[in-house]
Design a protein around this nucleic acid. Sequence first.
DNA 1: TTTTGAGTTGTTCGA
DNA 2: GTCGAACAACTCAAA
Length: 473
Amino acid sequence: MRDDLRLRGHAAVTAAAQRGKVLPVFVLEDAPRRRAPGAAACWWQRLSLASLARDIGALGGRLLVRRGTPETVLAELAADTHAAGICCQRSYDAGGRDDESAVRRALRGPTRLETCDGDMLVDPASVLTAAGGPYRVFTPFWRALRKRVGAADGSPATQAQRIEWFTHFGHGEEIDRISVPDERFGWTQSLARHWTPGEDAARHALAAFHSDGIATYEDDRNTPGMQGTSRLSPHLRFGEIGIREAWDTIAGLRTDSAIAPNQCEAWLRELGWREFCRYLVFHFPDLPTANFRSEFDRFQWQDDADGLTAWQHGNTGYPLVDAGMRELWHTGWMHNRVRMVVASFLTKHLRVHWRAGEAWFWDTLIDADYASNPANWQWTAGTGADAAPYFRIFNPSTQAQKFDAQGHYIRRWVPEIAELSGSALHQPWLARESELRAAGIVLGETYPLPIVDHSNARAAALAAHAELRSKSR
DNA sequence: TTTTGAGTTGTTCGA
DNA sequence: GTCGAACAACTCAAA
């Protein structure tokens, strides 16, 4: 088991069950080849493993968790158990592929490693432009992907009907004892109030979205004060639901006259972006750490430690930015619309390198993904594939007025200014003195003044980008 | 083979 | 208040 912590619709589990008795194994790595999960993802992963262990236990088996490298753990187990084979879901990132090679090299005797589909909708190596290279623009990629996914039979991987378990093995790690970073601060208890990891919870979330959310998805997805999105991202990140099953569940609705096709299409397109990010990292393995557009290697990022800290803690003085950063801290998740606003603020208003924002998201997001996280940060910063143009600089106040007009979202996450009304809530620094006093607010004390002036910061960002362009010519 | 048009998410300015 | 233009440069597909 890797980033695929489920039993249903799992091609590798099915393949293993067809061969004989199944011993489910998860390897805890101290120094993984793949990027080690951040603190929030570690918390999710541990609970998801516990959930998987319960599910397997209820069926009469036991999940074995062992510490080590994949190759040492699996080679030793293969020898001890005389395994007929090892089945896993194929990985498309470089570290994961290296793990597979290392396991193959380490196996002695007749045991072979068999990799199965599951992590992506299509094999990224097989989607190419007419010229034979990888796509760098989303829309042509999306059209090609649509054609391919539509052409497949559309049935989810067959479910293992009956699994016989292999139960004779030695000692494994106690899942409840696996340490999670920062747990002692009580931070993870806050995450637990908002989320339930595990396959059961993932199925409920997909079912709820299928019956409720999808009908108005395109209309509501941009309103952070509503539950307008599927909130499936962490479940997909850990494979508690298969990507193909998620796709088919919603794609199957298009024939249902009760749901407008554009609502389904809008969500499938988001799965298309997940696929595009993985596809890009597959073809451009440097993307997670290096500018996709290399001319940005000369860009003058600011080394603004205080600005970065204010951003991380939700103390920028811009209510929508602060609401988003606090939602992230308290729940391990942030609404998509707000992710764009806070990322634009860090990379354009503060001109802090996108890697600093990417690192913070990596550590605090329960859905932090090796491909989506860096690819989307690069998209926002303007350094990425098919990226936002340099002049697209979100105005945090305008975005708040447009997408949180009633202020539900800001009031929830920035309670110290909840008493303000109308435009004062979106721009407290413009509020009348009397209104601030009535609401008990002292700007600079109970809530920060804006750490940068929007129009000055915007002008400075445009100038920095203009300078880069003149140097590039 | 060459040309043309289109392309996730925005903001500001001036008419 | 509304509306269109400007803010680049490049990739890819279709004509």
